[in-house]
Design a protein around this nucleic acid. Structure first.
Lengths: 213, 213
DNA sequence: TAGATTGTTAATCGATTAACAATC
DNA sequence: TAGATTGTTAATCGATTAACAATC
């Protein structure tokens, strides 16, 4: 159990969000099968996932929601703590900036970049936009470790290379092209085209979806 | 090999896009290891994936790119053929409409819906917007089988239920909340929050990303 | 105690990887 | 032929699922 899979981390992220809501609703204790039900997972799997965060439950009352949240919180940490840069201020880039700006301190974008001089030096959704030439300097100065790529396909790989050269250690790629990254740099492909084609394929044939994580 | 996993379908979608580009570049034949290299996959896996489409290669020249594309095309089909509805015309919804409108006939959105009367009856990016009350009627009349959910969290589950009731068989959910769907309805969770937290977790610890698919 | 839940171990399942014979 | 690639089978790997003892 020394190596944590990305599936477990993904599920923990979902648990955190669901538990956040439950705490807001005033729930103090929760059983694994209740959390599983809310997340579309299996109770035994939930228990095993929660164990990796170091939190344990109680056979009579289940898990303490507040303790559980604190446990997941300290295990996952917050993306903003690592510094997030967004490259490519098109429709999708702006949508993500808007999404991250609205009361989501955990997902705060520290800096945005674009090659279009028209977009540079403005402040959009509370986030300053820099020219591409300032990418390395700005990332290093602000200790940015996460990059979100929302550029056109043609620019995606060179942007990824530039981000990695600037010290970034994790990437989210929204451009519909597979990227190459060196070992040690985590890459999450956010491929809308691929996902939509999966939906179409299985909608045609009537299969249910994959599990979360 | 009678049941095709969603991972295989996902990889085929990526192969198609990469092969499209290669055909445009004038490449006529390709070896499995070349395609694998361009997609970050393993050659043996690529060969097995391509076999499920019914296409076979040739030990001397590899695969004919044009035949391969035709084969993948007829296997995957096109999402637009099933009819796509988008619900929730916020920042993200508009960004997706813009994305799908620009020379992407395979991803053409047939109808959009929103509960805000201000947004209704307009045409955005070549797509007409209807009020939520018209959802079932419009989906049935146009034979829409795929739904994209870009509403706030609070509305996501009821929108999903309404879409399923209107005959939709596949869903993409961008709202950061796990949805419940009946068996036979394929659900693809597009969870930016979760993915960003995965990136942050592994960026902190220096692990490479998961494979495509 | 009795009963339901937790934490742990074993069994199952599926996908990936490796090995190799068949092919051009 | 010789050499590299394809198609197929077997082995490995990891995650999920099921079973059960420990716990409150």
């Amino acid at each position: 159990m020394n190596v944590i899979s990305d599936k477990v981390v993904g599920r923990l992220s979902v648990y955190r969000r669901v538990l956040d809501q439950m705490l807001a609703d005033g729930l103090q204790f929760i059983y694994s099968h209740q959390l599983a039900g809310a997340c579309g997972a299996m109770a035994a799997q939930v228990r095993r996932d929660l164990m990796v965060t170091g939190c344990s439950g109680n056979a009579r009352r289940g898990y303490n929601v507040r303790d559980l949240l604190a446990s997941i919180e300290s295990f996952l940490g917050s993306p903003s703590d690592l510094g997030i840069a967004l490259v490519g201020i098109g429709n999708l880039g702006r949508a993500l900036m808007a999404y991250c700006s609205v009361r989501r301190p955990r997902m705060h974008i520290a800096a945005a970049f674009d090659s279009d001089p028209e977009k540079v030096s403005r402040v959009t959704h509370g986030c300053r936009c820099y020219p591409m030439e300032k990418l390395e300097e700005t990332c290093r100065r602000n200790g940015i470790l996460i990059g979100i790529i929302t550029t056109p396909v043609s620019a995606a790989q060179s942007v990824a290379d530039a981000l990695v050269a600037a010290g970034v250690r994790g990437l989210m790629n929204f451009a519909p092209v597979p990227l190459r990254t060196p070992p040690g740099v985590y890459l999450e492909e956010m491929d809308v085209t691929m996902s939509l084609e999966k939906v179409a394929y299985f909608a045609r044939r009537g299969k249910s979806g994959p599990e979360i994580g």
